[in-house]
């Protein structure tokens, strides 16, 4: 075996070790609860799928499973009550009004109070209640749109209104690494009404205090 072949083999081994080391680091990084840090105040961002299976966004008007997507910021504070559970107050909101191309702005503010049960070193379960405030603000003005017989003038709303819906919140908390947690919340809005709707909220948060 000549020198070049030996060097190539050594090079391959080195490359293999480097890759293995990176994979090992990656695996270690994803191992849950490596060092769960007990924090009280969490700040995070997430994705809320609103009105799941309730509204359509396809041309044949069939319902969309995912509903409307919102990306709120979340602030949570934990009040320890017993060693096995805590109360958590959360506020999620779109920090700026989400605007349509026609400048109608929607603001999504959600407050909840949940009971968080510590189930293992890295998993928590939670349930509670909350209130969703959904605001719609129009810019005013008019627009020409088809009306079947040509075009007609239609109008944008010129003021703001908001609806308030109570909801039940059932969720899972996954303590990923150190003070970072991932929450998955299933929300049942207006649970006893015929207008009941479902939403989900996936949030990644970092403990800051």
């Amino acid at each position: 075996m000549n020198l070049i072949a030996i060097l190539i083999r050594i090079g391959k081994v080195v490359v293999f070790m480097k890759i293995s080391f990176k994979i090992l680091l990656l695996v270690l990084f994803f191992i849950p609860g490596m060092a769960r840090a007990e924090k009280r105040l969490y700040l995070g961002a997430g994705a809320a799928s609103y009105n799941m299976g309730k509204v359509t966004s396809s041309s044949d008007a069939s319902t969309s499973l995912m509903g409307e997507l919102y990306l709120p910021l979340t602030l949570s504070y934990l009040f320890p009550v017993k060693p096995t559970w805590s109360l958590e107050a959360s506020l999620s909101m779109t920090p700026l009004s989400v605007k349509t191309t026609d400048s109608i702005a929607k603001t999504f503010v959600m407050g909840s109070l949940t009971q968080v049960f510590k189930k293992s070193f890295f998993w928590d379960l939670k349930s509670g209640v909350g209130l969703l405030n959904y605001s719609i603000t129009g810019p005013g003005g008019s627009i020409q749109r088809s009306n079947g017989t040509g075009t007609a003038t239609f109008y944008y709303p010129g003021s703001s209104t908001s609806s308030k819906s109570l909801f039940l919140d059932f969720g899972v908390v996954y303590h990923w690494v150190r003070d970072i947690r991932i929450d998955f919340d299933a929300l049942i809005l207006s649970p006893i009404s015929t207008r009941r709707s479902f939403s989900t909220l996936l949030t990644i948060s970092k403990g800051i205090l």
Binding site: L69, T100, I104, K106
Partner: peptide
């Protein structure tokens, strides 16, 4: 991420 708008349409009213 929070201010990205996934929305692209708006409703109208029949009168100003």
């Amino acid at each position: 991420l929070s201010v990205i708008s996934p929305h692209s349409l708006a409703f109208t009213l029949g009168s100003s």
